Computed example of a mutant assay.
Amino acid sequence: MGRSFRYLLASTTSSNLADGVLLTGAPLLAITLTRDPTLVSLAGVATTLPWLLLALHAGAIADRSDRRRIMVITAFVRALALACTAAAVAMDAMNLPLLLAILLVAGACEVFNDTSAQTVLPMTVGKESLGRANGRVVAAQTIGNTFVGAPVAGFLVTLAPMALFGAPALLYAAAGLFLLGMRGVYRPAEVSTAPLRQDIATGLRYLVRNRTVRDLAVAAGVMNTCSSAYLSVFVLWAVGEGSAIGMTASQYGMVMTVLAVGAITGSLLADRLARRFGERSTLVAFWTANSLTLLLPVLFPTVPSVYVTGILLGATSAAGNVLVVSFRQRIIPEELLGRVNSAYRLIGMGGNPLGAALGGLVGSVAGLPVVFVGAVVLCLMAMPVAARALAHRPEPVAV
């Protein structure tokens, strides 16, 4: 793994540290503005809605553009937007609509950045190294998102709310600068000149006709939608005097750090375990364990239980992600990778805003435990779909 991959890894670490500060700090800041479950869940809706609206276009653009350049532009756009928001906080102008607006901007940039990042990585390492490379990338993402970013957010939200936006602005700018150190061409060898809508349709046809990729997307979509519902209101179950667990904001941030310990371990071991026990068995085992783990803080609403949950969730989520991403990068043609990945993620993540909204609505009407148990049941129902998908050998698909 050469120079370009190292710069890509450094950029990933910096941008995900920014994500961790912003995405963990945002709901903590939101509950200082309102304790209404529906309104709090809107932070999750704003973060994930751009995946539903922009994923297909991001994939088509990534397949006809310099993918690194897209990542550089989105890094600097996020840096500028968050710097302006930090200034607004300094002037005591923060409110819930402004918070939701900045999360929408950051989420839109994330769609283009992450879609391009998954297509750039196979252009920096060989196919035989994809598992190891993705393991390191997921580990870096975890370190940034939760191991460092989350506890820092818990600290900043009480000490200096302005820094919840100022610190990520600097980190996104650093991520863009790291990308400028990469060498090489990151534009597909075969670039479509067809209308954008036709390119999007080509990616969708490939996904629909490839049974393996399609069924994995459906299973991932169910799990992510349910997890989004769960996580959109979990902060109300865990944090505050009126919550079931009674954690402080700083303790909540430390739980995310514990989750990161598990995630780093899982991401680095995933490829080795898959080689030993088989990709199909390993992935299904990780996803099943991930779903069942969500029950622990509901059955045992204590701080130690949440710490155990964090370790297990981190390990199983990260390992599953490494296996699925590496699998897609191996079997999808390079010139279609952006479009098919975006179509996959539209199905896999497009339900997240709906899940977040439903989590808030169901939590308000029926109570938080109903959200948590229902999410687990639906996740387990997706396991046979994932097992069936991996049971079939991928074959070339005509588009």
Score class of each variant (00 low, 15 high):
Val377Leu: 10
Arg345Asp: 01
Arg187Lys: 13
Thr248Ala: 06
Gly2Ala: 06
Gln118Met: 14
Leu236Tyr: 01
Gly355Ser: 12
Thr202Lys: 10
Ala260Ser: 14
Val218Ala: 12
Thr257His: 12
Thr142Asp: 14
Gly278His: 05
Leu56Trp: 00
Gly314Pro: 03
Pro297Met: 10
Gly350Lys: 08
Leu346Thr: 04
Val399Tyr: 09
Leu39Glu: 11
Ser243Tyr: 09
Asn290Ala: 11
Gly149Lys: 07
Arg132Asn: 15
Cys379Asp: 04
Pro188Asp: 00
Leu177Cys: 12
Val239Glu: 01
Leu268Gly: 08
Gly360Thr: 09
Leu236Glu: 01
Asn113Val: 04
Ile264Phe: 13
Gly363Ala: 05
Leu104Glu: 10
Leu82Val: 07
Leu346Gln: 02
Pro97Thr: 04
Pro396Ile: 11
Arg3Val: 08
Gly338Lys: 00
Pro369Arg: 09
Leu23Ile: 15
Gly351Ala: 10
Val397Gln: 06
Val371Glu: 00
Thr12Leu: 05
Ser192Val: 12
Arg345Lys: 06
Ala217His: 01
Ser250Met: 13
Ala220Trp: 00
Pro369Lys: 07
Thr119Val: 08
Gly144Glu: 09
Ser250Gln: 12
Gly359Lys: 01
Thr142Glu: 14
Leu121Cys: 05
Glu190Phe: 04
Leu23Val: 15
Tyr230Ser: 05
Ala93Cys: 03
Thr48Gly: 11
Ser15Phe: 07
Trp51Tyr: 08
Leu273Tyr: 06
Val303Thr: 14
Tyr206Ala: 01
Gln251Tyr: 09
Glu190Leu: 08
Cys379Ser: 12
Val371Thr: 03
Val362Lys: 02
Asp92Thr: 12
Val371Pro: 00
Gly59Asp: 01
Phe165Leu: 09
Ala389Val: 06
Thr115Asp: 03
Thr265Ala: 14
Phe286Ile: 15
Trp287Met: 07
Arg388Lys: 11
Gly338Val: 00
Asn134Gln: 14
Leu313Tyr: 03
Leu312Val: 12
Ala217Arg: 00
Ala62Thr: 02
Pro304Arg: 01
Ile347His: 06
Val373Asn: 01
Val255Cys: 14
Ala249Thr: 15
Tyr7Asp: 10
Val235Ile: 13
Thr212Tyr: 03
Ala174Val: 13
Thr115Pro: 04
Arg339His: 04
Val157Tyr: 02
Leu296Val: 10
Arg68Met: 00
Met381Glu: 02
Phe372His: 02
Pro151Ala: 07
Ala87Met: 15
Leu231Ser: 13
Ile347Glu: 05
Leu358Pro: 02
Leu231Gln: 14
Gln198Ile: 11
Asp114His: 15
Arg328Leu: 02
Leu358Ala: 07
Ala398Gly: 14
Gly314Asp: 07
Gly240Ile: 12
Ala150Ser: 11
Asn16Arg: 08
Ala160Ile: 10
Arg330Tyr: 10
Ala289Cys: 13
Cys84Arg: 13
Thr24Tyr: 03
Ala46Arg: 02
Ser41Glu: 06
Thr302Pro: 03
Leu216Met: 08
Thr32Phe: 15
Leu54His: 05
Phe165Asp: 06
Leu292Phe: 03
Ala244Leu: 06
Thr293Glu: 09
Ala249Gln: 13
Leu380Phe: 07
Leu380Val: 09
Ala167Thr: 10
Phe327Glu: 05
Pro394Met: 11
Gly359Cys: 02
Glu279Gln: 14
Arg35Val: 12
Gly154Trp: 01
Met182Lys: 00
Ala133Tyr: 00
Ala106Ile: 13
Thr248Ile: 11
Leu179Met: 08
